[in-house]
Nucleic acid binder design. Sequence first.
DNA 1: TTGTATGCGTTATCAA
DNA 2: TTGATAACGCATACAA
Lengths: 340, 340
Amino acid sequence: MSATIKQIAELSGVSRGTVDRVLNNRGKVKPQTEAAVRRVAEQLGYQPNLAGKALAVRKKAPVIGVVVSSEENPFFEDVLRGVARAQQELKDYGVRVLRKPMKGYDVKRQLALIDEIRDEINVLILNPINDPKIAAVLNDLQKNGVGVITMNNDIENCDRLCYVGCDYIRSGRTACGMIALMTNGQAKVGLLPGSKKILGHNQRVQGFINAARERYPQMEITGVEETEDDDIVAFETTKNLLAAQPQTTALFVAAAGTYGVCRAVEALHKTDEITIVCCDAIPSTVEMMEKGVIEATICQQPFTQGNKSVHIAFDYVVSGMRPQKDTFIVKNEIKILENL
Amino acid sequence: MSATIKQIAELSGVSRGTVDRVLNNRGKVKPQTEAAVRRVAEQLGYQPNLAGKALAVRKKAPVIGVVVSSEENPFFEDVLRGVARAQQELKDYGVRVLRKPMKGYDVKRQLALIDEIRDEINVLILNPINDPKIAAVLNDLQKNGVGVITMNNDIENCDRLCYVGCDYIRSGRTACGMIALMTNGQAKVGLLPGSKKILGHNQRVQGFINAARERYPQMEITGVEETEDDDIVAFETTKNLLAAQPQTTALFVAAAGTYGVCRAVEALHKTDEITIVCCDAIPSTVEMMEKGVIEATICQQPFTQGNKSVHIAFDYVVSGMRPQKDTFIVKNEIKILENL
DNA sequence: TTGTATGCGTTATCAA
DNA sequence: TTGATAACGCATACAA
């Protein structure tokens, strides 16, 4: 158990208040006293005690803001369940969580929501739209002492505290590995990202292609088409792809639109011939797995993403220090019917 | 934020000490006062505050004992890493963790280690050998106020606080599902548990057989042979099985001995014909996956098992209450080379 | 510039 | 049987 402020105060012959001022850089301390205190703290290897901080932090009642695209989006509903659990776990520490759910990916809407709560919060957790205007606002928040944690997807040119989410490249590689195992490495695969504008989707496709090139020379990519994260578009796109490339034996859905893809394969009576691997385990995907249309899905621990983000946010407001790591990567989980 | 002891004291017109005595059943309270206090606490929906408890618990400096078969066992080394992390996470709360690693599964040895530390600990975490003598000692510990948490495998006829580990039946089912996906449901599979005496191994085999029966009618079981958790025995057993049942196209190693199994398959030059699925991701298994001998492994989050156990133990000593659940089931993770 | 006092919620000790 | 008080470690308002 490490040293306490009290011990440091006694050893350096000053009061606890002074030690507090030194250790938290509050100023108003004579340089010599400061040096002395720091030396003692150093020697004793002082580490602030979280139990004490947590108890004291109640008075401040810090607020964590959560802005996520969870409306009508089952994936983010799971994320919010993780947030709710964390809220429960931290309730004794006097944190408050302020949620601002939004629908879809509209930059203006996201900016408006951030603006609505920016003055009440100490940390902001969000799945940022990768847009310079958003980045600018987030940078501004940080300057004003509001910590920012990006979740599920990251944003460029932005000084956030950290990113919590999966490694999309590995997600694509894993999908490739699964398809290879199920087809003896011989598959002719159609890739179906959502939108080329979304970084994560591109990375999944990239990871898939790289893995295929490196490890499965006999695998062939028959096409890369966007679903625009929409089931109807996905339905049409898939039908067209399978018409144009009838030799296709496998599909990797790297974004939303999975249900539309499945319906297209069903409509063409090709469920037995085509191996489908997708991402995440939303209800419609589970249903298609139970029907045997989808063979496997690559998940990214949505619950953990939400839960972990809040805990990191809490540690930040309590300790006042940046998280230890710049990125917190959750696992890419392979789910088949038996371990759903 | 819920009510505090102080509020209850004021509302019921007694001192904080008395409220404490009532709420923690310390006795020495007049029945009427007790009733009054309880009524108020009930009304306010009192929930003890963990931040406060955590700070106060430092004085008691509770000790958590950990007895696991981690010597020369890479799986349990990962478990211990989870324990170490939890120790780190809880260091500010004044807990001490006392480890007593042991080698193998000798009842006497386990009894001796428990006996060595039983007077110094408040909770015991262990992977119990499923033996009546062990059960008796654990029951006795609980009677003497030492909580018991079983980890990785459970024990019969024993009143432990809870079990932390995987669902072995589902582990077997998942292995079956993976083999089915890789062989188009046509595999002829040899099953290799460790010992029929070990509950988890039997359950894995049972789960595999059930899943095959229910979902993959064309799959065939060519044999069930024990590896005795030993690589040499596994090597011989595998060679014999493949000699006696040369039609075998897949193997499920449901316990230790995986390395021996792989060496046998290599020796017979059958690595390309035979699909191998095993359990856990110890270094020798990873090596065999990189060589392409093993296609997939079903893991059980060893790190999480260790980490979670310690956290549950801590919550128990702080709150004094049994954990909410009787079993904490970790996930069965499918690992292939790409998401190792 | 520094020190003192008080509070966060719970628990333990001692006195009444 | 009960109450008052101090302590756990930290933060802060206020006094000096």
